[in-house]
Design a protein around this nucleic acid. Structure first.
Length: 199
DNA sequence: AGCACGATTAACT
DNA sequence: GTTAATCGTGCTC
């Protein structure tokens, strides 16, 4: 489980955002930090796709911030919000079409001492159960924006994991889009894996 | 140049 | 349930 597994290749990301978001459940997010591996099993994701998706930053079109989402799939989109938090996303779908998957929760399984050093003020269940918490735990910030997930030199990638079956997956509206108009506010583009359904 | 707000979190009452 | 923290981004003037 803690040994390295095959790294997901670009073809995995070069597919519809909803499909990638669903299939990322059970895969392993790994960050290489000073030669040490830190990460865990992906438990929650959200899909954002297209300029017509008013919940997606791409609704504003191509800007300096959103440019990476228009690029090659399999790259990282990191943005800053609420004046203090970083958010980790994976660019998906074909080059030229803006789409991304937000990583909202993982189950830590490697580098636990490093994660505890940053999140130990909270109970273990709260270490990485939010998008900004993951970035804090894995020390992911602006410097990761644009990194290629398909090259280990980027120090961030996704490894094959255990499949999560449909009986362990629930969907629902994306979180935090309170002022976004329908249907985008309620469209069920959030994917959650039951913790009992992994590992 | 100024402004309102945000794909959140933690600490309150 | 409510709210402060805190600043990059995109929009308006």
């Amino acid at each position: 489980m803690l040994d390295p597994s095959p790294i997901l290749e670009r073809d995995f990301y070069n597919r519809p955002a909803l499909q990638v978001a669903r299939e990322l459940l059970g895969m392993r997010l790994v960050r290489s930090e000073d030669g040490r591996r830190v990460g865990g099993i992906i438990l929650e994701t959200e899909a954002y796709r297209g300029e017509e998706d008013l919940g997606c930053h791409c609704k504003a079109g191509r800007t300096p911030r959103t440019a990476v989402m228009y690029g090659q799939p399999g790259h990282v989109y990191v943005y800053f919000t609420y004046g203090m938090h970083w958010m980790l996303n994976f660019v998906v779908e074909q080059s030229g079409f803006p789409a991304a998957v937000l990583i909202r929760a993982i189950l830590p399984d490697v580098g636990l001492d490093l994660i505890e050093a940053r999140r130990g003020t909270q109970p273990r269940q709260l270490w990485t159960n939010g998008p900004a918490k993951i970035c804090q735990a894995l020390r992911i910030d602006k410097s990761f924006n644009g990194v290629d997930l398909c090259e280990t030199t980027g120090n961030l990638w996704v490894e094959a994991g255990q499949p999560v079956f449909d009986t362990s997956v629930t969907t629902g509206p994306r979180v935090g889009l309170n002022k976004v108009p329908e249907p985008w506010k309620s469209i069920p583009w959030r994917f959650l894996a039951a913790e009992s359904g992994v590992g």
